[in-house]
Simulated assay, not measured.
Amino acid sequence: MTAPLRLIIFDVDGTLVDSQGDIVAAMTHAFERADHPAPDHAAVLGIVGLSLDVAIPRLAPQLPETTHAVIVQSYKDAYMGLRAQSGVETSSPLYPHARDTLEALHAVPDNLLGVATGKSMRGLDKFLDGHGLRHLFVTRQVSDHHPSKPHPSMIETALAEIGVAPENAVMIGDTSFDMEMARAAGVPGIGVSWGYHTPEALGAARMILSDFRDLPGALDQLWG
């Protein structure tokens, strides 16, 4: 009997790469451009994973929509500028053992890898090309085409594109938004402890990993 195809979906920021330096710097710049005090480091990391049009109002609910729009655009410009200045590998370094683990998972014939991220397609393309990872991912879901996490649209679309049932898919992420999105889509979620939300916030996760190298074993455990 042929084994079913399995879809392993990854978040990006806080899961595959540590981009918090540029995220916080770009957010600080964007708020300063809007002549408004910047949120603190913890607050900024707390919204990573949300689409910007949802994240900015959470950070500054008292500001009008027109100012939110200015902050969103200023953030995008500042983030792209910082990344261009230092290069993707420096700006958003991969977490330890991420590349080797991705390559090992990709080498298994029944595994298919995907991405579900709050990044734009432009931002995701820059990340994948900068790290030489584009060939690994067969489906790439971004904020341009979906409601913000934790809405299940990204996962549901990935499943439909690949033709994989929810029970044969998994979402890997570092935030409560990732785990809630997985639950809403009927897909198990595996949380990681090295990202931007605390393990205690990942209540919807089936399990939580502290080392990237543990992921293959966790998937074997999940799928028997």
Rank of each mutant, 00 (worst) to 15 (best):
M1S: 14
M1W: 09
T2R: 12
T2M: 11
R6Y: 05
L7D: 03
F10I: 09
T15L: 08
T15D: 02
T15C: 04
V17M: 03
D18M: 07
G21Y: 07
G21C: 09
V24S: 05
V24K: 08
V24E: 05
V24F: 10
A25M: 03
A26S: 15
H29L: 07
H29M: 03
H29D: 12
H29Q: 06
H36D: 05
P37E: 00
P39W: 04
P39S: 06
P39A: 01
H41P: 03
A42D: 14
A43N: 10
G46D: 02
I47K: 02
I47R: 04
V48C: 00
L50W: 08
L52V: 14
V54E: 14
A55M: 06
A55Y: 02
L59Y: 01
L59C: 01
L59R: 03
P64D: 15
T66N: 13
H68Y: 03
V72T: 15
V72C: 15
Q73S: 15
S74D: 15
D77S: 13
D77T: 14
G81C: 06
R83N: 14
R83S: 14
V88Y: 08
V88I: 13
E89A: 15
P93I: 02
L94F: 11
P96N: 07
L102G: 01
A104R: 15
V108M: 13
P109I: 11
P109G: 11
N111L: 07
L112K: 11
L113V: 14
L113F: 04
A116L: 08
G123W: 00
G123V: 00
L124F: 06
L124R: 04
K126A: 14
K126D: 15
G130A: 05
R134Y: 08
R134P: 10
R134I: 01
H135N: 15
L136K: 02
V142T: 15
D144K: 12
P147H: 12
P147T: 03
P150N: 07
P152G: 02
T157Q: 13
T157P: 08
L159P: 04
L159F: 09
A160Q: 13
A160D: 12
A160K: 12
E161L: 10
I162K: 02
I162Y: 06
G163I: 07
G173M: 02
T175C: 00
T175V: 05
S176P: 00
D178L: 00
E180H: 11
A182K: 00
R183I: 01
A184Q: 08
P188S: 07
G191K: 03
G191C: 05
G195N: 03
Y196L: 05
Y196D: 00
H197G: 00
T198N: 12
P199E: 01
P199F: 10
P199R: 05
I208Y: 08
L209I: 11
S210M: 04
F212G: 02
D214Y: 07
G217N: 11
Q221H: 11
Q221Y: 11
L222Y: 10
W223E: 03
G224A: 14
G224V: 08
